[in-house]
Design a protein around this nucleic acid. Structure first.
Length: 468
DNA sequence: ATGTCC
C-alpha cells in the first residue's frame, strides 16, 4: 500500500502521514491541494524512512519539499540524542545573506547597461563556479585566520551577532581535528569568499512595493563542507554496518565518539559557511561603490541546511532542548521564542530569507505564533519542479524564448518600470531558469494561510550572477 | 551541493 494514499488532510495546507511500521513519529506536511497532488510516492517513502531513524521526535515537510538523498529537501527532523548526517546534507550550512542598499531606489538601477557594469564589477571581485578559482583582487586570508573561522565563524571577522542567525556555533576543540579530513582542510583557504556553482548566486533585487534595492547572496561551505559531510557519511555507514551505497541513511548517537566528531566538524563547516557569506559581502560592497557610488548594509544572514541544538516549542506549551535538522528548510522563531531573548528580534521574530528563482525573485518572511506547528521552520525556496538533466533536455527547444523573457520582462517596482534581468552568462542556464521551480507565491501562501509566517517583503531580480 | 571519482 502506498504511503501517499495514507496521507490525511487536517486543514487546507496541513497533511499528516500517520505512524506505521518503524516510524517514530507521524509526518506533518505543509502542502495545499495542488502541492500535495504534485508529490511523488518516492517522497513519502523517503519521509517515512527518515521518520524511522532512532531518536526522531517530529518530522515536517515544508511546502517546497521534493525528493533529496536520505531526507527530503524541505525536510525538518527533530531528534533527542541522535544526529542524522543527511539532515544537513552535503552543503553544510548552505544559506542566504541579504544586503540593503539604502542609497539606491528602483529608478537608480533602471538602466540595464549600468546593471551590466555592476555584474561585471562583482565578477571581478568574487570567485564564482566550481573549484579554487580566485578573482585577481580576492581578499588574501592567511591560513591562521581560516583556523579561527572554523571555530568562531563570522565572529572571527568582527561581524555583530545580531546580523546573523548564528554568528558562530561552538566547536568542541577536544574533538575537532582539521587533519581528520585533509581534503576538506586543503579546500578551505583558497575557497573562502567564493560562491560556488549549482543554484548559488549573487543577485540584485528590488522590493515590489517600496522600490528599495537589495542584494541577495546564496552560497554554502564549498569544498570544505562537502568533504566533511562525505567523510562522515562513509564513516557512519561503516559504523552502522550499512553498505556504502546506503551511506546517506546512516546516523550517529550524539554521545558516541563518531557522533561527537561529526558534531564538531559539522559545526566547523557551518562556521566556515557563515564566514564565507560575510566575506563575499566585501567584494559586493566594493563593486556597488565602484558602479553606483552606494553603500551596502548587512540586513541578516541565515542557513537553510543545518543541524542546530535549540529550544523546542511543544504543542502543550512547554519547552525542551533537541536537535533540529533543517534540510532545505529555514529556521523560523516567532516573537517571544526563548532562543531570541535579549536579541533585537525578540519582539518581532527573526526574518526568514527565502530565495525563489532567477525569474520569480525572493521574499522576506516573519514567523507567526503558528510557526510552533511546523517545528519553527519554513521553506528554503520555491522547490525544484524538474531535475537538472531533465530541464536541460526538455527546455532546450524553448531556450530562445526563455532568454527573451529574461531580457524583456517588465515589472513595476516601487512605481518604476524596470525592464529585463541582466545575467552573467551568454544564455540563461536551463537547469536554473524560472520554469524549473514551483510558483514561489503559491508556496508562501501555504505558510500564510496556516499562520506559520507572513510575507513582509516581495523582491524581484534585476541582475543575477550565477556560479557556472 | 561537489576539482560531478571512496
Amino acid at each position: 500500500m502506498s504511503y501517499k494514499y495514507r496521507v490525511e488532510t487536517h486543514s487546507p495546507g496541513h497533511r499528516v502521514l500517520p505512524r506505521t511500521g518503524e516510524m517514530k513519529a507521524e509526518v506533518h506536511a505543509w502542502l495545499d491541494d495542488g502541492l500535495f497532488e504534485a508529490t511523488d510516492e518516492a517522497l513519502w517513502q523517503q519521509a517515512a524512512t527518515a521518520a524511522a531513524h532512532p531518536g526522531v521526535k517530529a518530522i515536517h515537510l515544508m511546502p517546497d519539499t521534493h525528493l533529496g538523498y536520505g531526507i527530503p529537501v524541505g525536510g525538518v527532523v527533530v531528534t533527542d540524542d541522535v544526529l542524522i548526517q543527511a539532515g544537513s546534507g552535503y552543503d553544510i550550512s548552505c544559506g542566504v545573506i541579504y544586503l540593503e542598499v539604502p542609497g539606491l531606489h528602483a529608478a537608480d538601477i533602471a538602466d540595464p547597461e549600468k546593471r551590466r557594469r555592476w555584474v561585471d564589477a562583482v565578477e571581478l571581485r568574487v570567485a564564482t563556479g566550481l573549484g579554487d578559482h580566485r578573482p585577481p583582487r580576492a581578499r588574501d586570508v592567511a591560513y591562521r585566520e581560516v583556523q579561527q573561522i572554523f571555530r568562531y565563524g563570522a565572529q572571527a571577522l568582527g561581524v555583530p551577532a545580531e546580523l546573523c542567525e548564528r554568528h558562530y556555533i561552538e566547536v568542541d576543540d577536544a574533538v575537532f581535528d582539521e587533519r581528520r579530513v585533509p581534503r576538506a582542510r586543503d579546500r578551505a583557504q583558497p575557497q573562502l569568499g567564493s560562491v560556488g556553482g549549482g543554484n548559488h548566486f549573487i543577485e540584485m533585487q528590488v522590493d515590489r512595493d517600496s522600490g528599495a534595492v537589495w542584494v541577495m547572496v546564496h552560497c554554502g561551505s564549498r569544498g570544505f563542507g562537502w568533504q566533511t559531510a562525505n567523510h562522515f557519511f562513509y564513516a557512519g555507514a561503516e559504523l552502522r554496518g550499512l553498505p556504502k551505497k546506503r551511506r546517506e541513511e546512516s546516523w550517529l548517537y550524539r554521545d558516541e565518539p563518531l557522533g561527537r566528531a561529526y558534531w564538531a566538524h559539522h559545526n566547523a563547516a557551518a562556521n566556515y559557511a557563515i564566514a564565507n557569506r560575510h566575506t563575499i559581502v566585501d567584494g559586493v560592497r566594493e563593486a556597488t561603490r565602484a558602479v553606483f557610488d552606494a553603500e551596502v548594509d548587512v540586513f541578516y544572514e541565515i542557513s537553510h541546511n543545518l543541524v542546530q541544538e535549540e529550544t523546542l516549542l511543544l504543542p502543550d506549551g512547554s519547552t525542551e532542548r533537541g536537535f533540529v535538522h533543517r534540510k532545505g528548510a529555514t529556521r523560523a522563531f516567532p516573537a517571544g521564542h526563548p532562543d531570541l531573548a535579549e536579541t533585537k528580534w525578540a519582539a518581532t521574530g527573526h526574518p526568514c530569507l527565502v530565495p525563489g528563482s532567477m525569474l520569480a525573485g525572493a521574499a522576506i518572511l516573519y514567523p507567526q505564533p503558528g510557526a510552533a506547528r511546523s517545528a519553527c521552520s519554513v521553506n528554503h525556496g520555491s522547490g525544484r519542479l524538474m531535475a537538472r538533466g531533465q530541464a536541460r533536455r526538455e527546455l532546450a527547444h524553448i531556450h530562445d524564448e526563455i532568454d527573451h523573457e529574461m531580457r524583456t520582462i517588465r515589472r513595476a517596482l516601487g512605481g518604476v518600470t524596470v525592464e529585463g534581468i541582466v545575467g552573467n552568462t551568454a544564455r540563461t542556464p536551463l537547469d536554473e531558469c524560472g520554469h524549473v521551480y514551483k510558483d514561489l507565491d503559491a508556496v508562501l501562501a501555504v505558510l500564510e494561510s496556516e499562520g506559520i509566517a507572513t510575507v513582509a517583503h516581495r523582491l524581484y531580480p534585476v541582475a543575477n550572477i550565477k556560479g557556472v
